[in-house]
Write a protein that binds this DNA or RNA. Structure first.
Length: 554
RNA sequence: UGGGGCGUCGCCAAGUGGCUAAGGCAACGGGUUUUGAUCCCGUCAUUCGGAGGUUCGAGUCCUCCCGCCCCAGCCA
């Protein structure tokens, strides 16, 4: 087997286990329920659940719901569904930061009693001024040395909703001149007199991320708390709380580089803008890098997991080529998707030596390399469709350059006969509206006589028995590799042609009865998946998940 | 100009002082093929951000320099 080198977190866990610092690994995936999960989250999900699985431990799903202004129950459900769809099962019940509000509050009081926290009445603006800058130390708040009893009393008033929002906060008493800004008396609790999606109006104050996260980890017995690089300088604060509070366990925070992909955006803020300003059709628009968008597009969980597993877990923050993701999408779909034929831009062909009304049933394998996937039956008759782009009247086109049907020449119809184009019926503008052709008898599954050399193989569909459908082709959502780079607005980089809707497409009849949950490869076109929103029983809409690799140059 | 990180092929990345700098993606050649797909074979860093130094030996250790990312929310 291929031995993938251990990443730095695996090395840490292995030695923690070997040296007895940890007996059972516990990780967690801690989303905030304020938006949908995207491909960047998938890396974190695969990492956390993967580590737990690899080392025989557990991984919790915990919602970090400490800011009721932005959070909703609908996001909770969507996130749970996405994690399950990826194929992961969290340990025990879903956890919520809000489950621990009571304990967090007690710990806040504990810090005050220990003279390590105080209620500060500086306004937000004053707090900012007192904090200093990156290069200048901050100044102590005038409330810093108020008696613990007074802080305790005020904190209780904050909790009961007797204090206006913005009037007071609870701050840790650390060091206003610390070079690490996070240590300049960070806010532990702020007043927010808004209902919470789970605790209702029970609380009027809510803990900050810094005060909540590590303690949540400690409560759950999380051993390795993995987060992204931007939290690196929160670690001293994370450790400060763990060191100064009577928490039940000692979690450790480790940071890795988040996933960045070019030609897309992976920040909740930007994704939300795309949705809110109607640049896309919602969070699950097939062009979105959200898990729900990818799912609707036809990307499989396996493709996402294989891709994530291919990514390095390191402390570098690079940008991965979209092509690398696409490689794993094609790799999975190539082995799993059933083949079918669909003509996107139909051009009628009449086969003059096939009797009108005659229907021959042909067999085509569902997968060229996997016989066990069986075969399907294809009706073949006098009238068929081929793609307009697969026919040319230009006989000077070289065989190497155009491996399709040329007037007067032969081409193989996939899983059917070799045919020859005899004539063209033209429309008013002189454009071909129908090709008159003939089949070469006896060429189903057999090579034609030596003097007949088909240029190539093209797909087709019976015109007498086929399925009308709509096809949606997608291009990347952004025109530039890093939308919003510099001081440009990322919306300026939107690709206006990212969606192309094709109507009047003709798919092989069998798809009518086919399982809409199936992923298909429409041969020579790409991978397609029935759209869950727009498909109807009599007229499916297929999303192009991704095209086939095209290695020839025109 | 404070603090915290990071710099190895176009992209991702292994490398934890000693055989000839892994691997994947992309690209480019060639072969097979009733999908211009898949598959197969081959090519692709005398060099590790730069300059010094230590060492018999350095991508790996030291010094200085350069570049990029993050931090001044009562967001996470």
């Amino acid at each position: 087997m291929d031995t993938k080198p251990e990443n730095f977190i695996q090395q840490i866990i292995r030695t923690d286990l070997e040296e007895g610092r940890v007996h059972r690994v516990v990780t967690r995936f801690p989303p905030e329920p304020n938006g949908y999960l995207h491909i960047g989250h998938a890396k974190s999900i695969c990492l956390n659940f993967g580590l737990a699985e690899q080392f025989g431990g557990a991984c919790n799903l915990r919602f970090d719901d400490t800011n009721p202004e932005k959070e909703e129950d609908a996001y909770v459900r969507a996130i749970e569904a996405d994690v399950r769809w990826l194929g992961f099962q969290w340990d025990g019940a879903v956890r919520f930061a809000s489950d621990y509000f009571g304990r967090l509050y007690e710990w806040a009081r504990y810090l005050v009693e220990q003279d390590k926290a105080y209620v500060c009445e500086l306004s937000a603006e004053q707090t900012r001024e007192y904090r200093g800058t990156l290069t200048e130390p901050g100044r102590d708040s005038p409330y810093r040395d108020r008696p613990a009893a007074e802080s305790l009393d005020l904190l209780e008033q904050m909790r009961r909703g007797e204090i206006e929002e913005g009037r007071m906060v609870l701050r840790a008493k650390i060091d206003m001149s610390a070079p690490n800004m996070n240590l300049r008396d960070p806010v532990l609790y702020r007043v927010k007199r808004v209902p919470h999606h789970r605790t209702g109006d029970e609380w009027n104050i809510y803990p900050s991320y810094d005060f909540a996260h590590g303690q949540e980890d400690a409560i759950e017995g999380v051993t390795h708390s993995i987060c992204t690089l931007e939290f690196e300088d929160h670690r001293p604060l994370y450790d400060w709380f763990i060191d100064n509070l009577p928490v039940p366990s000692r979690p450790r925070q480790y940071e890795f580089g988040r996933l960045n992909l070019n030609y897309t955006v992976t920040s909740k803020r930007r994704l939300k803008r795309l949705v809110d300003e109607n640049h896309v059709d919602g969070w699950d628009d097939p062009r979105m890098p959200t898990l729900s968008g990818l799912r609707r597009r036809g990307v499989t969980p396996a493709a996402i997991r294989n891709f994530c597993d291919s990514l390095a877990v390191a402390k570098t923050d690079g940008t991965v080529d979209m092509a690398q993701f696409e490689h794993f999408i094609r790799e999975d779909l190539n082995t799993s998707a059933h083949r079918a034929m669909c003509v996107l831009d139909p051009l009628p062909v009449e086969l003059v030596n096939v009797p009108e009304g005659q229907v021959e049933t042909l067999r085509a394998p569902n997968h060229p390399q996997r016989q066990e996937l069986g075969h399907r039956e294809l009706p073949f008759s006098r009238h068929i469709y081929i793609d307009r782009g697969d026919f040319s009247e230009d006989t000077s086109l070289s065989r190497k350059k155009f491996k399709r049907l040329v007037l007067g020449e032969w081409v193989r119809l996939r899983a059917a006969y070799v045919i020859r184009a005899l004539d063209v019926v033209r429309g008013d503008g002189g454009e071909p509206v129908k090709v008159i052709a003939e089949i070469v008898p006896g060429t189903v599954g057999e090579n034609p006589p030596e003097d007949i050399r088909p240029r190539g193989v093209i797909h087709w569909v019976s015109a007498d028995d086929c399925l009308d459908c709509e096809i949606r082709l997608y291009d990347r959502l952004f025109k530039t590799p890093s939308p919003g780079a510099g001081d440009s607005d990322f919306l300026e980089a939107i690709n206006p042609d990212s969606l192309k809707v094709l109507t009047g497409c003709k798919a092989e009849a069998g798809l009518r009865a086919g399982d809409p949950a199936h992923h298909f490869q429409f041969e020579r076109e790409g991978y397609f998946y029935a759209d869950s929103r727009h498909s109807t029983a009599d007229k499916p809409v297929f999303n192009q998940t991704i095209g086939l690799r095209e290695t020839w140059t025109q």
